[in-house]
Structure formats: C-alpha cells, structure tokens
C-alpha cells in the first residue's frame, strides 16, 4: 500500500510540474528546436520586452493587482453577509437566492457577455476602472458566498449570544468570537476572488477595452502568436504574484477547519 501511495504521490508531483517546465525554460531561451532537450541558446529577449515601458506589462501588473485587490475587498463586503444569511438562517425564497448567487458559476459567461457589454456601455461604466472591478465582482460572488455559507453553517450562534451576555460589545464580539470562527472561509473566498479577477480575460476585454490593460489581455495577445519565449516570460510574471497569494492562504485550504468544505455542500 505504501508503495502504491508513493507512486500516486510521485505521479501527482510529476503531473503538476511537467507542463510548467517548458514554459519556464522557454522564458529564458532564444532558440530551442526539436529534438534538443535543452535550448540551443539562452536569451533574455523576452525579459527585455517585459521591462520595456512600451510593452505596458508593468503597468498591467499594477492594474491587475489593484483591480484584484479591490474585487476581493468588495466581494468580502457583499459575500460575507450573504454567506451568513444562507449559512445560518432558514428563510422564504432561500433556494432562489442560492440559485441566483450560484448562477455566474454555472451559466457559461459567453451567454451573458454580449448583453453585459451593451449594459456597461449604456451606463457609462465601460473603459473605467470602476466598471472593470464591478464586472469582475460578478464571477467571484458564487465562490465567496459558498465559502462563507459553509463556515457560517458550522458557526454556533449561541457563542455570540454568550459573549454578549457576558458584556462584550458587538465589535469585540465580532473580533473575538465571530471572526476567528469564520476566518478560514474568508481566506478561501478571498483567495478565489483574487484569482478569478487576476485571471479574467473576456470580461476585462469587454468592459475595460484597451484603456484598462491587465495582464491577461497582454498574455492573450501573445497566446496564439507562437512566441514561446514571451509566452513563458509572461506566464512567470503572471504566476508569481498568485503564488504569493497561495502561500498566504495555503494552510486554510486544507485541514480540519477548511474553508473549502463549503464546495462540498454547494
């Protein structure tokens, strides 16, 4: 059994790493033709492009980060109360609320993009940072509410009441009782929100056009260009910040009090 387990784990490690290897190597390669296992020449061409102001990549990095961070905060603001209502209360129309809040994850985005584009233009939100943030918020809502409703459904409301009966003010009840209990859900919901916004292409293109340049927009313009070296470099620029996010949230993804448990009860 342990041999089998080792094989499974080894397969897992290889399966995850393998497709990242060529991307990583290409980022620093000049020529790399078949059948050579190693590049024929190394080159920093793509990196000189990444740091070239005309490439707009650093600007996009900043934009993407600002947008994703704002989306995450907004998503917490709207998602935590919704998660609380769904996780803790039984109320009329609850099923409908749940279906509505989940639908952005179930209905293919291309069904709604065309219509949303017209709405955003009509209401003066297109080509604005606010519009991009708002449109990114939509697909994060299902993930945030699911994570939050899960932790709230395990949350015993009597704790809050006890704390209050012992004289704690609402703010300190929230800080010392509620927050620690639901924190793992918030971290997981926030991580998903950040990553969904960070990787968003179609919605950004539709609302932000070219005025708001984000990393996925630049990555996509190279996706079918066949410039493997640039694709590799851009992928690294893309992945490193999201790796940091994962490092920060990793321990909340698994473990007894995992915020991921919620997706089991979608």
């Amino acid at each position: 059994m342990t041999v089998l387990k080792r094989i499974i784990l080894l397969g897992l490690v290889i399966g995850v790493i393998l497709p990242m290897i060529p991307l990583f190597v290409w980022a620093f390669s000049g020529s790399w033709f078949y059948p050579s296992l190693l590049p024929q020449s190394l080159s920093l061409r793509s990196w000189s492009y990444v740091f070239h102001p005309g490439s707009r990549i650093l600007e996009a990095l900043f934009n993407s980060f600002f947008i994703a961070a704002s989306v995450t905060i907004l998503s917490l603001i709207v998602g935590v109360p919704a998660g609380k209502a769904i996780g803790m209360y039984r109320f009329k129309g609850k099923t409908i609320v749940e279906i509505i809040l989940l639908s952005p994850a179930l209905i293919p985005s291309m069904t709604v993009t065309m219509g949303m584009q017209v709405l955003f233009i009509r209401y003066g939100l297109s080509e604005t940072l606010m519009g991009v943030i708002l449109v990114h918020l939509i697909p994060t809502i299902p993930y945030m509410t699911v994570s939050m409703s899960a932790v709230f459904s395990h949350f015993d409301i009597s704790f809050e009441e006890q704390a209050r009966s012992l004289g704690a003010k609402s703010l300190s009840t929230f800080r010392h009782v509620t927050l620690p209990a639901v924190f793992p859900g918030m971290v997981v919901g926030a991580m998903f929100s950040f990553l969904i916004s960070w990787g968003q292409y179609v919605l950004t293109l539709m609302v932000g056009g070219g005025r708001i340049v984000t990393l996925p927009l630049l990555l996509y313009s190279f996706a079918v260009s066949g410039d493997n070296s640039l694709v590799g470099a851009l992928s690294l620029v893309f992945i490193i910040p999201s790796l940091v996010i994962l490092v920060l949230s990793s321990r909340f993804l698994t473990g007894e009090s995992s915020g991921m448990g919620g997706f089991g009860g979608v």
């Binding site: 584009q117 017209v118 233009i121 297109s126 293109l205 539709m206 070219g210 630049l218 996706a223």
Partner: peptide, 26 residues
C-alpha cells in the same frame, strides 16, 4: 492596445453602436 485579433475591436465598436454611444468610443 494589443489584442488577439480584429474580431475584438469590431465587436467593441459594434457594441458601442448598439448601445448608442456615438462619441467617446473606446
């Protein structure tokens, strides 16, 4: 504004026309 094909800006301008945005196009 680098994009992955002309379909992108055609759709954009078309959507703006459909939404009645006759000036200040992107």
């Amino acid at each position: 504004v680098p994009v992955d094909g002309p379909g992108v800006y055609i759709n954009k301008v078309l959507a703006e026309k459909q939404a009645g945005r006759n000036s200040g196009g992107s």
